[in-house]
Design a protein around this nucleic acid. Structure first.
Lengths: 196, 196
DNA sequence: CATCGTAGAGAACGTTCGTTCTCAATGCAA
DNA sequence: TTGCATTGAGAACGAACGTTCTCTACGATG
C-alpha cells in the first residue's frame, strides 16, 4: 500500500472516530483497530497523536471549504450565494454523523491545553469569515454584513448540534434573508442618495 | 465548616478549573488541592467526578440565568430588553475568564460519551430559547424571531471564544436590531392590515 | 536452503487518571 | 488518662492512556 493512501485512511478513520466520540475519548489502539493498521506503521506515519489531530483538522478544513464552495457555486445571484451558505448547513445538519462543528468541538476539548489546536480553529473561522466577506462584497453589501452572517452560521451549527435537530439552518437562513435585504437596501439608498 | 458551604466551594473551584482548562484536563487531585479539601471529604460530598460535573453545570445554568435576567430587567422597553441579551454577552466576553459557553464546551467534550451532560446542555439551551421567546412575545414579535435571536447569541459566543475578541457581541447586537425591527414592522403591518 | 531485512501483532513501559485504603493525629466523652 | 470515632494527608490500586519494544512470520536474494 502506498504511504500516502495509508495516511489518508488513518486520517479519515480518525476524523470519523474523533467526530463521533470526541478526540480524547478515542485512544490510539481504537484508531489502530478501526483503520486496520499496525501500531508500528501508525507511528511510522505520524510521530504522535497530536500530529494526527492536526492532520484531521486540516482534512476537516479542506472538506468544509470544498463542500461549502461547491454549494455556493451552484447558486445564481450574489444574494442567493450568500443564502447558499445556509443550504449547505441544512444538508450537513441532516447527516447522521453530524455532531457539531469539528473546530468548535476540538477547540472546546483541547483549545485550552493545546495552542496548536486553538490556533487552527481560529484560522479556520477566520478563513470562513473572509469567504463570507468576499460573497458579501460581490453582492454589493456593506462590510458589516459578513460578520453578522458568519455569526448566524456559527450559531446555527451549535444550536443544531446541541438541540439535535436541523431546524436551526432554516431559521438562520430566514434571518440571513432579512439581514441581507436590509444591508442591500441601505447600500442602495446610500449610493442613490449620493448619485441624486 | 458547613457541608453546604464545603460543597459550594468545591463546585465553585471546579467551575473555574473546568472552564479554564477543560473538564477532562483537570484531575481530582488538582481540584482537591485548589479547593483545599481532602480527597476523603471530596468523595464524601460527591460520589464521583461526573457528579461534580453535573453540579458545575447546574451552577453555570443558575449563574447564567440570573446574570442575564438581571441585565434584561434593567432595560426599559421590550425591544431594549431583547437587545439587552447582547449587552450581557458583551460584558461576559470582556472578562478574562471567558472561554466560550460552558455548555457548548462541555457538550463538545463529553456530550458524545455522557448522555447526562448532553441532556443538560440541551435543556439549558432550550430554557434560553424559551426565555428569549417570552421577551419576544412581550415585544409583540412573531414567534419566528426568538429562535433567530437565540442563534445570533449562540454564534456570538462561539465566535468570541474562538476569535479571542469580544467584537461578536456588538455585531450580533446590530444584527438583532435589524431582525427585531423587521419582525415588528411585519407584525404591525399584519395587525394594521387586519384592522383596516 | 540459508540469511537477512521488514512488517504485523501485541506485550510492555511509564504515566496519569478516578477511586479507595491506610494510618497517624485529633477531639471528645467518660 | 483511656478509649473511640473522625479527620486529613497521601499512598496505593486498577484501569487506560500514549508510546516503545519484542518476537515471530514472511518474502526476497544469494
Amino acid at each position: 500500500m502506498d504511504n500516502s493512501e495509508l495516511r489518508q485512511r488513518i486520517v479519515a478513520t480518525a476524523d470519523e472516530l474523533y467526530n463521533s466520540k470526541g478526540i480524547q475519548a478515542v485512544g490510539m489502539d481504537e484508531l489502530r483497530t478501526a483503520a486496520g493498521v499496525s501500531l508500528k506503521r501508525l507511528y511510522a506515519e505520524f510521530p504522535s497523536k497530536s500530529s494526527i489531530v492536526m492532520a484531521v483538522l486540516e482534512r476537516r478544513h479542506q472538506s468544509w471549504t470544498e463542500g461549502l464552495d461547491a454549494t455556493v457555486q451552484q447558486a445564481g445571484t450574489p444574494q442567493e450565494r450568500l443564502l447558499a451558505i445556509f443550504d449547505y448547513l441544512a444538508g450537513w445538519f441532516c447527516q447522521d454523523s453530524f455532531r457539531g462543528c469539528g473546530f468548535i468541538n476540538s477547540f472546546a476539548e483541547l483549545g485550552a491545553i493545546s495552542p496548536d489546536v486553538a490556533e487552527y480553529a481560529r484560522k479556520h473561522k477566520e478563513s470562513f469569515q473572509e469567504y463570507v466577506g468576499q460573497l458579501a462584497k460581490a453582492a454589493g453589501a456593506p462590510a458589516y454584513l459578513a460578520p453578522q452572517l458568519a455569526i448566524l452560521a456559527e450559531g446555527a451549527q451549535t444550536t443544531a448540534a446541541i438541540a439535535g435537530t436541523p431546524d436551526a439552518a432554516g431559521q438562520a437562513r430566514q434571518a440571513a434573508e432579512v439581514l441581507i435585504d436590509a444591508a442591500l437596501v441601505t447600500a442602495q439608498a446610500g449610493s442613490a442618495g449620493s448619485a441624486g
